[in-house]
Design a protein around this nucleic acid. Structure first.
Length: 125
DNA sequence: CGTATGACGAGCC
DNA sequence: AGGCTCGCCATAC
């Protein structure tokens, strides 16, 4: 959803759009999302975008973890469910070192034509 | 407008 | 395998 009708979506909005495509029970890495959004070194920006979300968001931020298979969130002292809990509720298992097996759970991503479609809309090419 | 700061990641020990 | 360094890039200030 663009802020103004004739304005291109911001980087954050493009990131959110991609994260919404991650199916339940799967995870993606920050770098993986960044690659689809076409900012190959911008994994940190994905983290920044997710950090900016508020509680009631419809963006499944918890499905994005780091390339080591771990949650990158600092220890939150809130009562909200942790990222791990949210993922476990979707059937994802963590190993004894708090790691997700990416070989099993990583989202396969998008096919090239789908990526092209997204970018065409984003950049009006 | 320069600097600092991240929910990162690849490469090297 | 695990820790460190350095590069990345959009924001914040």
């Amino acid at each position: 959803m663009a802020p103004q009708s004739n304005e291109l979506p911001t980087v954050f909005e493009r990131i959110y759009q991609v994260v919404r495509l991650i199916p339940p029970g799967r995870v993606a890495t920050y770098g993986q999302v960044a690659a689809i959004v076409s900012h190959c070194g911008a994994a940190r920006t994905v983290g920044w975008a997710l950090h900016a979300l508020n509680e009631g968001t419809d963006v499944p931020w918890h499905r994005v973890i780091n390339a080591s298979g771990r949650s990158s969130l600092p220890n939150d002292e809130s009562d909200l469910p942790t990222q791990r809990t949210l993922l476990e509720e979707e059937g994802i298992r963590f190993d004894s070192q708090d790691r997700v097996d990416l070989a099993i759970y990583q989202w396969e991503g998008l096919d090239w034509p789908e990526i092209e479609d997204l970018r065409a809309a984003w950049f009006q090419t």
